[in-house]
Every structure is written in C-alpha cells, then in structure tokens.
Amino acid sequence: MSFVLNTHVGQRRSKRWIVPVVYIVFLMLPLYWLLMMSFKTNQEILSTFSLWPREFTLQNYITILSDSSWYSGYINSMIYVVMNTVISLAVALPAAYAFSRYRFLGDKHLFFWLLTNRMAPPAVFVLPFFQLYSAFGLIDTHIAVALAHCLFNVPLAVWILEGFMSSVPREIDETAYIDGYSFPRFFTKIFTPLIAPGIGVAAFFCFMFSWVELLIARTLTVTDAKPISAIMTRTVSASGLDWGVLAAAGMLTVIPGALVIYFVRNHIAKGFALGRV
C-alpha cells in the first residue's frame, strides 16, 4: 500500500533512516543519563564521572516506592489526569461535531474564543484560580486540578477533533439519517468508530498536557492531591539534593507517559488506514 517515498526516491532511501536515528539518539542521551544516575549512589554521582554505574544500586527506587509521601504523588497525578481527559473528551466531542457540521450564530468567533483559552498563560490564572476554587471549597481535591486543566485541554480537544471530523464525508451522516438512525445512535454507533483515531490523538494530548503541567496543579493542592512533580521540587529544596533519588523519581514520571504513547500508537496505526479514505 504505502511505498510513499521508496517508490519515488528509490536509491536514496537507504540513507534516509540516518535522520530519525540521529534525532532519536539526541533525544535519548539526557534520558540515558537520568537512568544511569538513578542507579548510582549519591556519593558516586558526586565523586566520579562514569558513563554507567560502578556500584549498581536500586536503593533510590526503594526509597521512593516504600514511602507513601512519595508514591501517593503518582496516584494523585494519575487520578486528576484521567478525570481531566474524560471530562475534556466528553464535552469536546459534541462541540467539535457542531463546529465541523453546522454553521450557527457566532460559530467562528466562538471557535476562536475557545482557542484563546489555550493561549492564556497559566501564570496569569494562578492567583484567580486559587481564589475561585477556595470559594467553592475545592482546594486540595483532584477534581479542582482536573477542572482547572480543562482551561487549556478542552479547546485543544475541540480543535483536534474538529479536524478529524471534518475529514469524514458529510454523506455518511446523511445516509445514516435516511436509514433511520437517531442522532445519539448515529453518533455512538457510526461516527465515533470512524473518528476513533482522532479521539485517541485528542486523549493523548489531554493526558500529556495535564500530566506535565505543574504551576496550576501545585497551586491548587496542599497534601491530599499533590502531584508527583510538585513533591519532587519540595524534596529537592529540603533534603540537600539527593541526586540519585531525584533521578529515580524523574525516571518514574517518564513511565506513565511511555505507556500511554505505546497504547495510542496502536490506535493511530489502525486509524491511518481510515484516514486515507
């Protein structure tokens, strides 16, 4: 099916892999360094320079996984990230459908206004968010962070989904209505499977931006819902820089992301065939 470039530039194809490989090596070097540091003792990190650990140790990981003030951070982060992804997709799906299929009063202005929220610097919202969520008694709850992250995730989800939905021919909608499908049934049975790759990509982006955000998440939480990345900063300043533990904690924040992209990859790969229709 797809011999996009090897049919076209047959002879040069042999060298093309160099670009992605060099790029990936560049991406992996700092991560390799972090991984190696997480297996070293703090003393070794500070005293000798070595490309791999001389005394291999798992102590850094044990420190984190046996202390609830560390590992609860991971659980908190996961809870609000999943909440946020579900809320964002649930409200963005119908809205994206409206934008891709209908014209209505003020649609273009509304679409751009939504995007402006994605453009708002989080630094601007830190103080007002704190006051708003205090007023509702939501400080230090997972739902507060999930709702706050909707500020930038919902517009992005609408935008991505609108793009995918617009690539589905309108004739499909019309045929389904003629065949007697009601709107909710059409949407769940026919339309959603068609744009599944789009939903996967949107979910990936929601997860990503919620997982990596720190400034707002840190402001809205105290202890019960504190994300792991905030716990890291606190420990760094308090314990006199235990580089090994810091590296191990960093490595552990990479893992959920790696899992998510691994699952989305399958989703996208399946979706590519559909996208060509």
Partner: peptide, 9 residues
C-alpha cells in the same frame, strides 16, 4: 517520550 515528561522534570 520527551513530550510526556513533566516540565519541571
């Protein structure tokens, strides 16, 4: 991978 690492990390 780099996209999914928290920014402070």
């Amino acid at each position: 991978l780099p996209l999914l690492i928290p920014w402070n990390v």
